[in-house]
Each structure stands twice: as C-alpha cells, then as structure tokens.
C-alpha cells in the first residue's frame, strides 16, 4: 500500500518508490528525487470511453501521473486534505475535490440524477473504485462526515457537497423554500437530498 502522509492539514506528502500516483494537474508544490510528470488527460488514465463520457457530461477531472523515486508534496488552494483508504468499494466524489489517487484506483463517471424534474438535464459525478488510498480536498475547513439512514434523511447544499458512499438515493429538489435560502444571483436553486443508508462528506465553504 502506498503511503499518503499529511504535513500539516493542507499538504499531502507522497513517497514514490518506483510506483505512481495520479494527481490534480498543477497540484504539485514541491518534490525531491527523480520524479516524472505526465499528463493523464481528462480521462484520468481510464481510457477513451471515460474521457468521452466526461466531455459529454461536463464532469471533468484533469489529472497528471507522477512516477519515479522521491517525495512529492501536493496541495491546492490551501484546502484541507483528508486521506481515505478504499478497500474494494466505491466513492462518489465531486471531481474538483480530488487531489491524489493511488495508481491502483480506477476513476470513472457515474450518472448522479436529474437536475430538477422539469429540466430533465442529467448530472454526473466522478467515481473512484478499487483498493488503495486517495486524498480529497475540503474548502474552508475540515470535511464533515454525515450519516444518512432511513430515520435521518439529509439535505445538502450542492456547493458544499464533497463525496458520498453507501446505498444512497440522491435526488435534486427544486423548491421555493430552498431558492429563498440560497439568495439572489448566487448558488444553485436546488438542494441535494439523500435517502437510504450511507455517509455524505460536506465542506464548510460553498464552491
């Protein structure tokens, strides 16, 4: 297993021993040793199908592959970083919240639901699957993990959503009440409602 280590709460330190990671383009802030950086394209190294799907949906994740021997430090916009170890399961994540994924993990695009019942416009998120570590970004402070269960449905501001896992039913709710709350000229006019069983990660700052 690769070692993802935090240096403070906003810098990720990755030790490369001849292996590789994929990281958000431009997120490398320093390195030592012999490390090569190569564009992994919009598809995140998952082949053309994923790339085409991304272009069609607007959900894009521009990644670079970092390989070699040495230490690389990653950070982005002074956001807080959380490291999650996947063990064969799937995480749905907002693509711009992805900092680094282990090369052993697969990234893809998944249908996330319809944006409002009337518009019929589809929404998509990035999924990360496999076994290995990944680092997520959270703006404005540490991410908050919130449990969803049949007893506790959750409503989230789409701009604060970071990631989710579990058996969740995700719906985009457009109502007058939420629009009042969002205010004029800013933010999304719909809220994200989660039912089922799982965990939702949110950040304290709206994108």
């Amino acid at each position: 297993m690769q070692s993802f280590r935090l240096n403070g709460s906003r810098v990720l330190e990755v030790e490369l021993r001849g292996d590789a990671v994929r990281a958000a383009s431009g997120a490398m802030i320093a390195y030592t040793g012999d490390v090569a950086f190569k564009s992994a394209g919009m598809g995140g190294g998952d082949g053309i199908r994923a790339a085409i799907k991304r272009r069609a949906t607007g959900e894009s994740v521009s990644l670079m592959r970092c390989s070699g021997k040495g230490t690389v430090w990653f950070a982005k916009d002074a956001m807080e970083i959380v490291v999650i170890d996947l063990a064969g399961d799937t995480l749905k994540v907002e693509s711009e919240q992805l900092l680094v994924v282990s090369d052993s993990l697969r990234t893809d695009v998944a249908f996330a639901g319809l944006r409002g019942a009337s518009s019929g416009q589809g929404l998509f998120t990035t999924t990360v699957t496999g076994s290995g570590p990944l680092a997520l970004l959270s703006a404005g402070g540490p991410p908050i993990a919130l449990e969803v269960s049949p007893q506790y449905p959750l409503v989230v501001d789409p701009q604060a959503f970071v990631a989710s896992r579990g058996q969740l039913n995700q719906t985009f709710v457009t109502d007058v009440s939420w629009r009042n709350l969002v205010g004029e000229g800013s933010g999304e006019a719909f809220s994200l409602r989660f039912d089922g069983t799982g965990v939702v990660y949110i950040q304290p700052e709206e994108r």
Binding site: V156, E184, P204, E205
Partner: peptide, 26 residues
C-alpha cells in the same frame, strides 16, 4: 473539531442570512 462549521438545533423560528447554510437534517 471544526471551527468553521456550526450546528444549530432549530425548534421554532430563526433569522438566517442567505447562502450560509451547507446542510440540514429535518
């Protein structure tokens, strides 16, 4: 563990500035 987020238990009425809520449990 988070100075940047606050949980307010609502039972009645509260004045809120728009654009400051990130999530809620009914």
């Amino acid at each position: 563990g988070n100075h940047y987020a606050y949980c307010r238990r609502l039972d009645g009425q509260l004045f809120m500035q728009t654009g400051r809520m990130i999530a809620y449990y009914p």
